[in-house]
Nucleic acid binder design. Structure first.
Length: 487
RNA sequence: AGCCGUGUGGCCGAGAGGAUAGGUACAGGUCUGCAACACCUUUUACGUCGGUUCGAAUCCGACCGCGGCGUCCA
């Protein structure tokens, strides 16, 4: 089998993946900020890294997958005193901050379950790791790379850049940063405009606050991830993932902080997923174009023509390479919906063929077809090893679908394939579609409950048709059609 | 301004110096009481202009368009 290659944002090339500790992988992914509901764009990284997590496990690695919950919020500097995003909204909604955080955390977990993502091994919260963050900041100050001003602590980027490559990940040039950082109030505290906050002094009205050596305040955004990643994965770990929009300044700053504290680059492979766009534009707060996940599932958004099943969204995301932008449209989602339905039916048909698989023999009845099928199957691994190319795996599955369906309809005999190829087809199709891609039937739950009733209706209709009683048969068909069930 | 990235058929998207990607839609056919499903067949491609090459959608250059970062961001 070919080796796993991953695209490393650090080198901007595909590299062979070699874990630090043989047989184990440390994976950290920036989790959600639970100050609000997740939107469609948020689904992408969690589904992408779910597949990466699943595939690494499939390869036999023991993965420690850490995905944090950012519940302390980041400070906003809107020309006013710095405020914590979460506490700001909490006041408006007259809720206890942690109540708000819990509500959106629960909602996030629910959505992740709908998407059939596997839970991370550890899901640390930022608020639960204030001690570790303060510890790291103290180390940075001691090393001479952090300084305190009026109860806030900043990271000295210029000093760091003198001996380290600040901008290595993002391709940023330090001199440009000094020129272009936005002119904001509160900036005068910093020695340099490129510096970023490690700890922020909290104004009295700030609800989320903690005692620190520098007074009452709250942690900066970047230090959260550094502290939690170091605690659970060590000074250096294998993979750090997240959205491309976090590359700078978030990930660049994480590297700087961790490098000072732990004396080595924190991450071997940086993996970044691209954005979901809508009308060619990134989905996000600033454009006011986001569609919440709950709206996607229920169809309750003016842009949406209908509701989209979580599995359709998962499939839609997996049909594109994770490093390409993915443009949302109703047409594209509906194409995915039909595609997934077709693929899943082929998969179910494959299961049904088990009954007649006794007929199979060692030699293939149609060696040419047999060869084509085994090639398509063997490419599953090859494509996944090539930087997790789920889109190509799915394309191969679609090429196998007509073969499977034709065997099921007895247009071609099952014995066209050798016993070995058929077994491989069943096994690999199942492993990939369910275990690695994490797909499920769109209506699995309904099916279980309704299968019996459905079968009864189908039988009655068949009887009616047999008696040429088309009034009854059409009535059954049409009524079911109204419920969205096609016979 | 800069730094990254990107431009593929009606739509979504793989791929990548010589091969039919794939999905979906449209059209025709087989099947069917009519449909649907399934299966078969099939049309519309690689932003523009140059260059390298026997050959470029794929490499190089210029230009144009779009996006991301730079500011909360997945």
């Amino acid at each position: 089998m070919s080796e796993l290659k991953v695209y490393n944002s650090l080198s901007r090339t595909k590299e062979v993946f070699t874990p630090i500790t043989p047989g184990h992988v440390g994976l950290y992914v920036c989790g959600p900020t639970v100050s609000g509901e997740s939107h469609l764009g948020h689904a992408r990284p969690y589904i992408t890294f779910d597949v990466i997590n699943r595939y690494l496990a499939h390869l036999g690695y023991k993965v420690r997958y850490v995905r944090n919950i950012t519940d302390a919020g980041h400070f906003e500097e809107e020309g006013r005193a710095a405020e914590d995003k979460i506490s700001k909204k909490a006041i408006l909604e007259k809720l206890e901050p942690m109540e708000l955080v819990q509500k959106y955390t629960n909602l996030f977990h629910w959505a992740m379950q709908q998407f059939n993502t596997l839970p991370p091994s550890i899901e640390p919260t930022a608020t639960g790791h204030i001690v570790e963050q303060i510890g790291m900041i103290e180390t940075i100050i001691k090393a001479g790379y952090g300084y305190e001003v009026n109860g806030s602590v900043y990271f000295d980027v210029k000093k760091y850049a003198a001996s380290h490559d600040y901008g290595k990940l993002s391709g940023r040039v330090i001199d440009d940063l000094l020129e272009t950082t936005r002119d904001l109030e509160g900036q005068e505290e910093k020695r340099d405009r490129a510096d970023f906050a490690l700890w922020k002094n909290a104004a009295p009205e700030h609800i989320m606050r903690w005692q620190s050596p520098w007074g009452i305040g709250f942690p900066g955004w970047h230090i959260e991830c550094s502290a939690m990643a170091t605690k659970y994965l060590g000074s250096q770990f294998d993979i750090h993932g997240g959205g491309m929009d976090l590359l700078f300044p978030h990930h660049e700053s994480e590297i700087a902080q961790s490098t000072i504290c732990n004396h080595q680059a924190p991450v071997r492979y940086w993996i970044h997923n691209n954005m979901i766009t809508i009308n060619g534009r990134k989905m996000g707060k600033s454009y006011n174009n986001q569609i919440q996940l709950t709206e996607m599932f229920s169809g309750s958004h003016p842009i949406l023509e209908k509701a989209y099943h979580p599995m359709v969204i998962r499939f839609f995301i997996l049909q594109t390479h994770y490093r390409s932008t993915l443009d949302f449209s109703n047409e594209a989602l509906q194409a995915s919906e039909k595609g997934l339905k077709r693929l899943w039916e082929a998969y179910e048909n494959l299961g049904k063929l088990r009954a007649i698989s006794d007929e199979l023999r060692a030699e293939a009845g149609d060696p040419e077809l047999d060869a084509r099928v085994s090639k398509l199957i063997s490419e599953f691994d090859e494509f996944m090893n090539d930087d997790f190319s789920t889109a190509r795996v799915l394309a191969n599955m679609f090429e196998l679908a007509p073969v499977i369906n034709s065997m099921k309809d007895k247009i071609i005999p099952v014995t066209s394939l050798s016993k070995e190829t058929f077994a491989l087809l069943q096994k690999q199709f199942s492993v990939y579609i369910e275990d690695i891609l994490g797909l499920k039937s769109i209506s699995a739950e309904d099916n279980e409950k309704l299968q019996g009733i459905m079968q009864l209706l189908i039988d009655i209709r068949k009887e009616a048709k047999g008696k040429k009683d088309f009034v009854t048969s059409d009535k059954i068909r049409n009524q079911l059609a109204q419920l969205g069930i096609t016979l």
